[in-house]
Design a protein around this nucleic acid. Structure first.
Lengths: 189, 189
DNA sequence: CGCCGAGTTGAACTGAATCAAGAAACGTGG
DNA sequence: CCACGTTTCTTGATTCAGTTCAACTCGGCG
């Protein structure tokens, strides 16, 4: 428990001990098996999850096609951001990609903590800012880079992802089909 | 001045009068002519701008091609987010699309206010969250929709944009060429 | 074993880009 | 108020990166 809060502080900035103590009262530990689905399309999901161990994936189902939108590994957050932050029905599913240990925080707790602790509000601002910057990079990657460049790019920033997630999910995350990804990885020459 | 702060509160949530008074000390008004460039690629830009009147545009120049990435109109913020929030050289240019009145806030002021006022920190969190949600929508728009659907979509959420910004900028924002946008707007049938 | 999901490979197809040329609209200065 | 150049937009013909459809391989696991 200490270790987890330490990780968060290391990753996102320090917290007062008051705040830390209060956070502990508001969170729940959950364990899931690989393949479990914790958020479904259409649902109002007012939970945000922090991956203690394992991995999760947010994806769209658009006319039957599974399109990955986000991956989270140890010490990262995941939620249906449209639902959690936008207060709308989730367009995403979220599933566990491996057996996982997860912390769940409800929006109610989240709002209470934000209101009460300046440093919690700051933490959230940092988390959201990081997501925003990641998305910015993703947008320019999709707009400016070829399929091959996008694959090389993800290899360079998340080399581990290839080991932990099936290629089909990576392909759809990169905005290409599995076939295209396969060709990009095994050029004819 | 009062009016501007009112607008901000209306758009993003209330501020204490302490905070408001302090904000006023930290901001600068600037006026620009249409076409003026206020941020250039490669520059470390540590300013964020709020459009009081007029309109601005952030864009990339990728091998000579001008690609719009963001538009801001009255009561909206604009900055090179990679530079302002990510502390990196800006990949963007920012230009004024019309004669404009703008408020400038430096990152130093920004950080001071965030540290000092819980409600300012909250304001920023809300601003950043809105950008994140917009980007999320943009990503799914690019991934799932055809050129025609993307155009119709922007028409539905920002009908005014067509009047205020040349089509070529809208085309590149939507991730298509000017020619394709033209065809989408004037179908043969 | 035999089956099933994951990945590879091939061939045909397609939405949008590119290249090219011209038409409209839009200042700006005489 | 008009002429002229510049920028904005349209239209057509061709090309191409990536999709789609389909068949096949491989590795694991009941």
């Amino acid at each position: 428990m200490e270790m987890i809060i330490n990780q968060i502080e290391k990753e996102y900035g320090p917290l007062s001990s008051d705040c830390k103590n209060e956070i502990i009262k508001h969170i729940h530990f959950l364990t899931f098996k690989k393949g479990e689905i914790i958020v479904r399309e259409g649902q109002y999901s007012d939970k945000i999850y922090f991956i203690v161990e394992g991995a999760a994936r947010a994806y769209y189902l658009v006319d039957g096609k599974d399109v990955s939108d986000y991956f989270a590994f140890e010490n990262e957050f995941i939620s249906s951001i449209i639902s959690f932050f936008g207060h709308q029905p989730s367009p995403h599913y979220i599933e566990l990609v491996q057996d996982s240990i997860v912390i769940e925080v409800s929006r109610k707790s989240f709002d209470t903590l934000s209101k009460r602790f300046h440093d919690f509000e700051h933490l959230i601002r940092i988390v959201v800012t990081k997501v925003m910057l990641q998305q910015q990079e993703r947008i320019s990657s999709i707009l400016f880079q070829s399929a091959e460049q996008r694959y090389k790019h993800i290899l360079s920033i998340r080399p581990d992802i290839i080991q932990r997630v099936p290629l089909k999910h990576i392909a759809s995350y990169l905005g290409m089909t599995l076939e295209t990804l396969s060709r990009v990885r095994n050029p004819k020459t």
